[in-house]
Amino acid sequence: MLEVKELCKQYTGRDKKGRKTTIQAVDNVSFIVERNKSYALVGESGSGKSTLARLITHIEMSTSGQIKIDNKDMSKMGKRELRMKRADFQMVMQDGQSSLDPRIKIYDSIAEPIRNFSSINKKEEKEKIENLTQKVELPLEVLNRFPHELSGGQQKRICIARAISVRPKFIIFDEAVSGLDVTVRKKILDLLLRLRNELKSTYFFITHDIDVAMYIAKNILVMKDGQIVEQIENIKSFSDFKHEYSQMLIKSLLPKLPSNTQRK
């Protein structure tokens, strides 16, 4: 459904002495995303993974290369067509609080995408919103509150409700579970796995945690310095990683159990 071909993005900046420098944030990236599969993009800060997400969602324009959606070049789409495509492409960001408008109540935050992409009456809208709230396992009382009154985990659930409200074909999660407590993180990931069976959406999960990637997705892309260094389909275990950078990431993972040297 999504085909990325030789995608490049350069930023121009100036160094300390005022000379122009170019930074290759995304460097000749190609991959294919198939329908109803789950993907994870793993990389550390500065690897270009967020830039890549912004290119795919057309928030930023690429310097060169192609993004095709259902065999149609995204850069050749008109404004109207692109707007309707946005309903198919939803994004859940890292910071729940700053993704929600602080001045409007949760109810209206969830309603916004629904109002933008469909025309239903007030009663249907209310039913739909309450249904979504239950789907993300929140009590209906939250609908009357403002974003700052919710915890980080609850805000994240609201962002997910917003994203799934338009039944997207494709959802990008950009570090969507970073910064949460490990217990909350697990609950959100389990919720996403359950929703995926129901929604039949394709997940594209961006994370710096290789264990999060393996928990949520079967297909893993590893990114470093703007390039995809490794692509693995149907991952089974850590030993499927061959690239030395991926192995370094695995080595850096925290142990599950304490080592014997601490036994004192």
Partner: peptide, 16 residues
């Protein structure tokens, strides 16, 4: 126990 269970990967996965 609940906190300990929040680790994501199954027990049989050994961290290299």
């Amino acid at each position: 126990k609940e906190l300990l269970k929040a680790r994501l990967l199954a027990d049989e996965v050994s961290y290299a």
